[in-house]
Design a protein around this nucleic acid. Structure first.
Lengths: 210, 210
DNA sequence: TAGAATACTAACCAACTGGTTAAACCAACC
DNA sequence: GGTTGGTTTAACCAGTTGGTTAGTATTCTA
């Protein structure tokens, strides 16, 4: 029997996604994924396959979604800086609608991409290439400093992922050491980050906020 | 019988650290930690305690070490920018001598700090406070833009952690999509990052490399 | 050197894990 | 009404896991 809100397969992927984010690949229990999806465990193996296939399916879905949204953003006829902001905010809103994704990716980075199958890596490589060409365009036009594009990209991704993933940890930090006030719940990570990065990349005089 | 290179406890912590980094808390098997430490499993429980205590011990050791090194760096009588660079490079060299640490921390961020006990969090809060006061000093003196200190800190940490942790993944990415050449093995992450960040923070005209 | 404290080991265990299976359900089509 | 094909289930299984135990060796100390 198909559960509320989608096909059995979708429910399974949703449940798997949140559990992989919470506990990691090893920590997530197949039984619990099935239970949370409102599905018998055997159904899960019937519809998706084993644990690894489940993991790959979750990642593939996320990457394909991000890629689609980025292609839209990059197709626009805007100035470089505007497109850059748009890309950052696209990534930002993606990470907010897929809050499991940054957490899964952080773990993946930590383990050296052990569990990432080629299908998934290929998707990431395409996304990487998009942003790389954006950075290179900026360097050619003289708007951006000539930084190592891969390092820059990784920095941006790292900052985004951690900024997004770290949200739940903040309250615990604040609880222990009230050295830091909590910024308002709805802190605009994207706006912060694109300001932060543009100031870091720009060769034009800072001080003015574009 | 104490193993080569240190006390049994140290060997156990070393083995645990590398396995927690490789596989995460759930993925790391106590038997393998013991085997890699050259120690009987019961010895591990005798010397350190259960798996959670082992994990806490590893993190505590790392944090205490970083804190000590940062205190040295911040005690120096240098200009703000120089101290900032020194702090970044201190963190950089710490992350290189404790390559397990960024990987463990990324997982910890991903899981919302589930496994981090107060002793450990307190250490991080102290470190956070140090760097926060450095940023605030910069804002007061007019050298740094007034950014949200916690967000800035998290960005810096995120970028550092991911830059360091992602090293092994790079080769796989390059193998699949040769869009990116591998930067020379010994890329100076610290130098890259402090340039990147100072340009992002500075209100003085960029272009000149301080 | 007696004996107490510490350091160490092999073997064991109950609980759990990913994965399978054989049988049942159920709509649609003949 | 029967049968076919996709879907669903409870029960099961072999291998693994964190943790323990009962007993042995080594070192310290009085």
């Amino acid at each position: 029997m198909v559960q509320d809100g989608g096909t059995a397969r979708q429910n399974i992927l949703d449940a798997a996604s949140s559990l992989f984010a919470e506990r990691g690949f090893e920590g997530a229990r197949v039984d619990e994924i099935a239970r949370r999806a409102g599905v018998n465990k055997a159904m899960l193996y019937y519809h998706v396959g084993n644990k690894q296939a489940l993991y790959t399916a979750v990642l593939k879905r996320n990457v394909e979604c991000l890629e689609k949204e980025l292609l839209d953003s990059l197709g626009s006829q805007l100035s470089l800086a505007e497109r850059f902001r748009l890309v950052i905010s696209t990534i930002g809103s993606f990470l907010q609608s897929f809050p499991d994704h940054p957490r899964i990716m952080l773990r993946e980075f930590a383990s050296g991409g052990d569990r990432m199958e080629p299908v998934v890596i290929e998707g990431f490589v395409r996304i990487l290439a998009m942003i790389r060409s954006l950075l290179e365009e900026g360097v050619r036009s003289g708007e951006f400093r000539a930084t190592d594009p891969l390092m820059t990209h990784i920095s941006v991704v790292g900052a985004s992922l951690v900024l997004n993933a770290v949200q739940p940890l903040r309250s615990r930090v604040v609880a222990i050491g009230p050295t830091f006030e909590v910024p308002g719940e709805g802190v605009d990570v994207g706006a912060f980050l694109s300001d932060f990065l543009l100031h870091g990349l720009s060769t034009s005089s800072p001080g003015e906020k574009p």
